[in-house]
Structures are given as C-alpha cells and as structure tokens.
Amino acid sequence: MNILIIEDESLIAKSLKKLLERRGVHVDWCNSGNTAIDAIKSGSYDRIICDLMLQDISGFDVIEDSKSIFNIGEIGKKFIIITAYSSPQVLEKAEQYGCLVLSKPFEDLNEAIDTFIKGKSSD
C-alpha cells in the first residue's frame, strides 16, 4: 500500500510516516503543495493525507489539480484531509469532494492511523 503525506509541519509528517510504516505501509512525504502535485502525477498512491494550510498553496488546490487524473469518486476515496481549521466552510468544501476530514490534534491517534489505512469505512 502506498500513502502520500502532504504536511508542512515536519514533526507531524515524520511521526505519521513512522507510525504508518510500522503498519507495513510505504509512505512518501511532501512538505509543499506544488511538490505534492508532481508526486501525485508521477506516482500511484492508494491514499493521500493532505493538510490544508500549506506554505505555498492550499490543500484544496492540490485536490482540485488532481481532478485531471482522478475522477470525483477516486478523489473522495484517495484523499483524507487533516486540518487544524475545521470550520464549517472547510467541512462543506470537503463534503463537495467527498473527502474525510480529521481535525488536528487527533482525538485518538490509533484510530486516526486506522482511518488512513482503511480509508472511508462506508465504502
């Protein structure tokens, strides 16, 4: 299983990477939106964990851009949004893409890791 983490806070990214690797997943990490767009186009990821507040562009820009290679159903399954700003507007927008949203800090770390691996439980 291949997972891409898009997160500019290195402590979070590295920790998540480590925790996911312990569960036998291959993890790549991008710390900016633009490098992530390149990575998504060149690699094949089962899951993309995407922060919204990145240094260059927003996480939603990354998702919007990947519409060129994924259909809307794939976007909903592949992308999981992690954010510290879980405002109603953010939740509404995520809903439009059909993406899961996890608020930082995670309430239960293990549950969050499970979600990253399993994706949307309803599917």
Binding site: E9, S10, L11, I12, K14, S15, L16, K18, L19, M53, A84, Y85, K104, P105, F106, L109
Partner: peptide, 17 residues
C-alpha cells in the same frame, strides 16, 4: 490557537513515538 496547535500537535505526536 491555530498557529500554535499545529506545531504543538507535532510535538506531542513525535514525543508519543
């Protein structure tokens, strides 16, 4: 709150590991 919570979350995640 938002600016601090991200790095603080990183700290607590990393310290967990």
């Amino acid at each position: 709150r938002h600016e601090l919570s991200n790095p603080l979350f990183g700290l607590s995640l990393a310290s967990d590991i």
